[in-house]
Write a protein that binds this DNA or RNA. Structure first.
Lengths: 338, 338
DNA sequence: GTGAAAGCGCTAACAT
DNA sequence: ATGTTAGCGCTTTCAC
């Protein structure tokens, strides 16, 4: 084991108070003499003293630890959130636990309980259903910031993106580039879990944008799948192709994994992704730049989201109860189109 | 605050010993009566008792906490490692800290010190240089598993992939599909930080595979860049194009970010990624399926790596000092080629 | 079958 | 300017 404050104290024939104060930089405040302070610091340095954070946490009732629960890290958007939040926390002296719940409410609840037992100071969570925050609140009296999904819980800070408007922009952008006659355009929106508010908003924006666009009702299809995953994207596209022989001219997807799954199904079923098919998706990925198709994506502003999320958490830590909903705007990125 | 064992004890007029034993499932072992055990458990349940992990950790000198340090989570390979390791740890009752060091040795050292102070039980790290493990070992007496990079430190468990052989396979695969005459084939390998053993092995495999392949020396270019990043990929490709007017017929890259950066540069400089250019990269990505080019990738077996890593850590925790080097094999995935 | 008590390492109010 | 000490909540040895 490493040296303790008590050992240092006895070896230097001073009290633990003195050592503690010197090492925590409170020497001035408590009028420890410069000489003593220096002597202690030098000795600690020499022997590689490392504070025991566990003991400190127990005493201070604060662990300088927070947690982030996301569905998956293999979804680049969440990985990016995690990366940025971890760095933001670290800058504040907080270490971050990162967990994946696969959008399973039971797993999420278990994680929350686990984090409660570990006395984390705050929780960032992408809630998998509207009940989670209420339940979790028994444990974290409002030391909780909700990310990415707005279930209308105004009692907590919520950080989301402007999905409806982005969906409108995305749809309009792609329609503006559509070479086909409106009457003959087949358009398909493949959307993950429609119970999620973010997905609801994306669908709603899509419908809004299509109003009065002269595309016949029968040519517009919205296929929802239970999750925003690759397999679900594949299955959704298979189902869509089976239901109607026509291959869509325009494909929108609600996330990158669904996008990938859908294209995978296309390759499987018809041997290729027709190069003229217009593609649009929520979230962004560099690889989209290299597809031959016209591709349009809606990139979330994860920097903004994390900044807002941490700011809200700081308010909670300071016991300021004024939860705000932050709506970050998305950026539409178009490739191979005007 | 939540109820403590002491409160429960006094409210039920039993001792803290009894409560502790009942709640930790050691009632049988210590011959607590069934009746008492049930009474305590029911009471704890009813009042939502949550163990205080901090206090427990202090007492047990064990936090049931580990940490993973990777360069970035925005690199899908590392995100995938993190996701899998977190789940593996959680199954074992361990919660995982995940941190990004951006391959900065100072950051990495700071993180390691921080984790030492937090008394984590074990550290998984992608070392950013060969000195890190030695330095970190002052803190973690061999409770450390090294991932992805083999600096030849046989004193620690190391989990890597068989980069050299994969590089040979990758190169041979793409050459076998090369339609051009060997004498006229321009081949470029764009490789991230050549100080990293993984990159060294990839370069070496590339060179080995090219021996006796009749491609003239002057047509083979290896451009190294300081990091396995997008920007570095872009700059590397720009440099390659500037140095020689010829656009390579075959492009290999050492990672997905470099791959993306390189293709980005191509689009910028010559307006497109020629559809006949043969592409090969280490690591894998679903999106590669959708490029029009012949594309070949070497996918790491992250499941295997994480399993091995955790097994090695378990040995260390049990004070079995028999560090092994695990070499996971890669899978070559070919698209638009035979 | 159950209880008393020490002690993990730290902080900070209070005493000197 | 520095020292004494209680106590954060838990586990476990030893005593009864």
């Amino acid at each position: 084991m490493a040296k303790t404050i008590e050992e240092i104290a006895s070896e230097l024939s001073v009290s633990t108070t003195t050592v503690s104060l010197a090492l925590s930089g409170k020497a001035r405040q408590y009028r420890i003499s410069m000489a003593t302070e220096e002597r202690i610091k030098a000795y600690a340095e020499e022997h590689g003293y490392q504070i025991n954070h566990t003991a400190r946490s127990l005493r201070l009732q604060r662990t300088d630890t927070m947690a982030l629960i996301v569905p998956r890290l293999s979804n680049h958007f969440f990985a990016s959130l995690a990366e940025k939040l971890e760095i933001r926390c670290r800058d504040a002296g907080i270490q971050l636990f990162v967990s994946c719940c696969y959008d399973n409410p039971d797993t999420q609840l278990q994680l929350i309980q686990n984090f409660r037992q570990r006395n984390i100071d705050g929780l960032f969570v992408v809630p998998s259903n509207p009940q989670i925050p209420e339940k979790a609140n028994r444990f974290f009296k409002h030391r909780m910031v909700l990310l990415d999904r707005d279930f209308g819980l105004r009692d907590f800070p919520v950080i989301i993106t402007d999905n409806k408007n982005a969906s409108i922009s995305l749809t309009e952008k792609i329609l503006a580039n559509n070479a086909k006659a409106a009457g003959e355009t087949e358009i398909l929106f493949l959307a993950g879990n429609p119970d999620m508010p973010s997905i609801k908003a994306r669908i709603s924006g899509f419908e809004t944008a299509l109003k009065g666009k002269k595309i016949p009702e029968k040519n517009i299809r919205i296929v929802t799948v239970p999750r925003n995953g690759f397999n679900e994207g594949t299955e959704g596209m298979q189902a869509a192709l089976a239901a109607k022989k026509a291959i869509p001219d325009i494909l929108l997807t609600s996330s990158i994994p669904v996008f990938e799954g859908a294209l995978h199904a296309l390759k499987q079923q018809i041997g290729e992704v027709p190069a003229t098919m217009m593609l649009a998706t929520f979230d962004d990925h560099t690889m989209l730049d290299f597809l031959p198709n016209p591709v349009c994506s809606a990139k979330q502003d994860s920097d903004h989201m994390i900044r807002a999320a941490y700011d809200e958490m700081e308010k909670l830590i300071k016991n300021i109860h004024a939860p705000q909903t932050h709506i970050a705007s998305l950026k539409i990125i178009a490739r191979n189109m005007v």
